[in-house]
Write a protein that binds this DNA or RNA. Structure first.
Lengths: 132, 132
DNA sequence: CCGTATCCCCGGGGATACTG
DNA sequence: CAGTATCCCCGGGGATACGG
């Protein structure tokens, strides 16, 4: 986001755009799900259920639906017996790789920043549950 | 995130790093708050309260605290009468600019992708409330 | 196998009032 | 001005069971 003075209208639009991205990626599971599909290229429902530790079928179903609405993944029903469903990233979904990579890099940097400098407690925050 | 096969351990760490970033930025207000401070360079509590339309003092207080814990902003109490408090971005906070910019760009791209291609309804999702 | 339906609980977060 | 305290509601999301 530009921090130079500019018309407030424009500024608000920028914030909206950032929020749009955040909304798409938000939720405890989205990143992990995308990651799972991305990692294996094509992946079935029950597989993802196993990949993403802790997620319930209800949540997985919901998150997948949202990802599909946002055109990040493509759902294909295979007429096996019983039917299986395959998920894969769309081109649009793949375009997320860059941004996810950026988030990853900053996340690593952040972790160093927080843990490195002081031994201050981190609260129940971001790093609290993940540290080490 | 790398989608080439690699050890699962490594893969999980990458996802954690992405989640760390997401956690820091998460919450309806964080981006707007950062943006407000960034835009004006230094900003007082009540000013931010006005900048970010819809936020309550309780939420602002809470979010600012989290941002401070994560070392993205610096809090300074000025001994005016009555006291005022000034917030500004730290160096670490400023390092977010790049990533926020990336999120902004992808957000714009995403909006085009969703609205552009079809006239499909977008549900209660991301764009639903912000569109136009 | 791939989900949907139902129940239920807990905490995020708004409104309002109060303090240093 | 810069927060805290309190009350209260609503929905996110877990557990479990069921349907195509």
């Amino acid at each position: 986001m530009s921090c130079q003075p500019l018309r407030t209208e424009e500024h608000k639009k920028e914030i909206m755009a950032v929020q749009d991205s955040m909304d798409v990626l938000n939720g405890k599971w989205k990143i992990s799900i995308i990651s799972s599909i991305c990692y294996y290229n094509k992946r079935r429902f029950s597989d993802i259920l196993n990949d993403v530790t802790g997620i319930s079928n209800k949540m997985l179903s919901k998150e997948l639906k949202e990802l599909e609405i946002n055109k990040l993944i493509k759902r294909t029903v295979l007429d096996t017996q019983p039917i299986t469903v395959q998920y894969e990233l769309t081109q649009h979904g793949k375009s997320l790789q860059t941004i996810i990579n950026n988030l990853k890099d900053w996340g690593i940097k952040h972790r160093k920043e927080i843990i490195g400098n002081t031994s201050e407690p981190i609260e129940e925050n971001a790093l609290a549950e993940n540290t080490i």
